[in-house]
């Protein structure tokens, strides 16, 4: 009798401790994944999954974290990726509420459209299907903006002219509907980057796309000189030299410390223009920028 009571107390305390530990650990798992410590995250997440009843919000979050940490744990081995796929599939089949569901679908799509380990193969059909479902079920969300970005990338990788045109037209239509979505700058640069090279070689379309990306506003840390240099090169290819000169001028006048400045001057002269003087950012009289 006395022994049975003791066992019950110990088991009860252990269960309570597990519950408490798991609740605290959810935050730690997110922290570990953010700092790319997938191994520790996967171990903690596995404990957290066991500690919560299936279908509870905690279980959903822990399962998603476990799937992501196995998906990205290194070394990349088949067993981990298959387990991650099974966990994503379980979340999707359980129709867990957002944001876990669209995230699980996007992550599962990435697992399918990338080579993760030696011997892995691409499964673009699964990826395309999942991205399309996210776009359809959550059309006005960031998740859909990300999904269409990955969907476009998958279709561009075919290098087929017609598929590329269709994919970019769909992305343009998306941008027309959601012009200020958080992914808009990078969606426009994707159109630009993939338009000017084969199979499309649509120079005007590429320049227009880059101009729109810059107009919307790229983050300060993205080096604009490289984009202007590319736009100048595209404009030269299309024979619109006046436009090329404009872009090369911007490198000199708008970007401090660009290593393209001198070559931009050379290109402007080669195209018959008169380049502005380079600004020396190392001049002794330089004052701090406001």
């Amino acid at each position: 009798m006395h022994r049975a009571v003791t066992v019950h107390i110990v088991v009860g305390l252990a269960a309570l401790a597990t519950q408490a530990m798991a609740a605290e650990d959810i935050a730690a798992i997110f922290d570990d994944i953010a700092h790319l410590d997938m191994r520790r995250a996967s171990l903690t997440a596995a404990r957290a999954v066991k500690a919560h009843p299936k279908g509870s919000p905690e279980w959903t979050t822990a399962t998603l974290c476990l799937a992501v940490s196995l998906h990205h744990r290194q070394p990349d081995i088949k067993r981990d990726k298959e387990k991650a796929a099974a966990l994503y599939d379980e979340l999707i089949a359980s129709q867990v509420p957002p944001p876990a569901l669209p995230l699980a679908m996007i992550m599962r799509g990435r697992l399918a459209d990338q080579i993760d380990y030696a011997g892995d193969t691409l499964d673009t059909a699964t990826a395309v299907g999942l991205y399309e479902r996210v776009m359809q079920d959550w059309p006005d969300t960031f998740f859909a903006d990300v999904a269409i970005y990955h969907l476009t990338e998958v279709e561009l990788s075919s290098m087929d002219a017609e598929a590329t045109r269709v994919a970019l037209d769909r992305l343009r239509a998306w941008l027309a509907r959601r012009p200020n979505n958080p992914m808009a700058p990078v969606q426009w640069t994707l159109i630009g980057t993939s338009s000017f090279r084969p199979p499309l070689e649509d120079y005007a379309g590429a320049i227009e796309a880059f101009e729109k990306a810059i107009a919307i506003g790229l983050p300060e840390q993205i080096p604009l000189d490289a984009i202007y240099w590319r736009m100048g090169g595209i404009a030269e290819k299309s024979g619109t030299n006046d436009k090329a000169i404009q872009f090369y001028r911007k490198i000199i006048t708008e970007v401090a410390r660009s290593s393209f400045g001198f070559e931009a001057q050379l290109r402007i002269r080669a195209l018959g223009g008169d380049p502005p003087e380079l600004i020396d950012p190392f001049a002794e009289t330089v004052e701090a920028r406001p």
Partner: peptide, 21 residues
């Protein structure tokens, strides 16, 4: 390809933050 795959780990970490309690 492996470098690109490594970058996707960082993207996944950021995306997952949208599910943080």
């Amino acid at each position: 390809r492996r470098n690109m795959r490594n970058m996707d780990r960082i993207v996944a970490g950021r995306l997952l933050a949208l599910a943080a309690p």
